[in-house]
Nucleic acid binder design. Structure first.
Length: 288
DNA sequence: TTCCAGGTATGCA
DNA sequence: TGCATACCTGGA
């Protein structure tokens, strides 16, 4: 796939929006499990070299959609720099993109992410896939798909705890039961207005405001969603509230009013920058 | 061994 | 409605 720009494979796969990508040992390629298929992606400049276990004719279209190739990120980055003075944050993570992920896997992944670290989240998701997903062979190795809702809905809490998900086991099982039972149709929510989808997501166990916003942004293309975690909270307070402690609800209202449908992109760039460069962020005492 | 990071649920005022 | 606290895990 040629002339893909701006595109930064490392930022996209390591910034905390997806948890099933890993860098190949001793190489620059990344291998990911996406929707029951394995993709190996190597970026050289603006060209992507992709090999996959997916032999279907539409795999190229799938990957174009997944990486949001057709969206003009140059224009988005320019607007973030021009309208919100985010030059440093955008320069740091230019080429980062918001993936279009599967709503079910994204929901469970972000339930696991609550009060958790990225290495732990990745380990737990991998454990769940190995224990309950289906095997996929690719280039001599066995990977595993993420299990369907029905599979997780039938588990006992003690059993699921073996995947090291801790107290989140109860949330995962109850959410799986609501999805498998049809009380919440995650795929239909993609078509619903953002506030309606948000309201429905908040009925799922283990899904609070931050997790719901992550699901909306990373799997439902609701770009006005603005997930606020500790890093974004710190950054927002520093930039817009003189470093003063500010309630989440106030930050949320402020973000939606000020950033509109660029809020999700802004959050995405700012999170990556704040998390990776907090010392720099503090030291310079200026907007990113 | 202890402390810490990280969101949500729950109970209480 | 707002606040305090418990919940797990793994790494420092």
């Amino acid at each position: 796939m040629e002339n893909v720009t701006p595109f930064n494979l490392q930022s996209i796969t390591e910034c905390g929006q997806a948890f099933r990508w890993h860098r190949e040992e001793g190489g620059a390629a990344y291998v990911g499990v996406v929707n029951s298929h394995i993709y190996r992606v190597l970026q050289k400049g603006s060209t992507l070299y992709i090999t996959t276990s997916n032999n279907e004719n539409d795999s190229r279209e799938f990957i174009k959609n997944y990486f949001d190739i057709d969206t003009d990120y140059t224009s988005i980055e320019n607007r973030l720099i021009r309208d919100f003075d985010l030059g440093r944050a955008v320069a740091f993570s230019s080429g980062n993109r918001i993936l279009k992920q599967d709503p079910w896997e994204t929901t469970i992944s972000f339930i696991i992410s609550a009060n958790n670290s990225i290495p732990n989240i990745k380990r737990t998701i991998e454990n769940i896939a190995r224990a309950y997903g289906d095997p996929i062979e690719f280039e001599g190795r066995i990977y595993c798909s993420f299990p369907e809702p029905e599979k997780l809905a039938g588990l006992a809490e003690d059993e699921l705890r073996n995947t090291r998900c801790g107290y989140r086991a109860r949330y995962i099982i109850e959410t799986a039961r609501m999805v498998a039972g049809g009380q919440v149709n995650l795929y239909a929510l993609k078509q619903a207005p953002t506030d309606e989808a948000l309201k429905k997501l908040l009925t799922l166990r283990g899904v609070g405001r931050k997790v719901a916003d992550c699901i909306l942004l990373y799997s439902m293309q609701k770009y006005e969603a603005f997930p606020i975690d500790v890093w974004i909270k710190r950054a927002m307070e520093r930039i817009y509230f003189n470093g003063e402690e500010t309630p989440l609800s106030k930050l949320q209202d402020f973000a939606r009013a000020k950033f509109g449908n660029l809020a999700g992109f802004l959050q995405h760039y700012l999170f990556h920058y704040a998390r990776c460069c907090w010392a720099d962020f503090e030291e310079n005492k200026e907007e990113p």
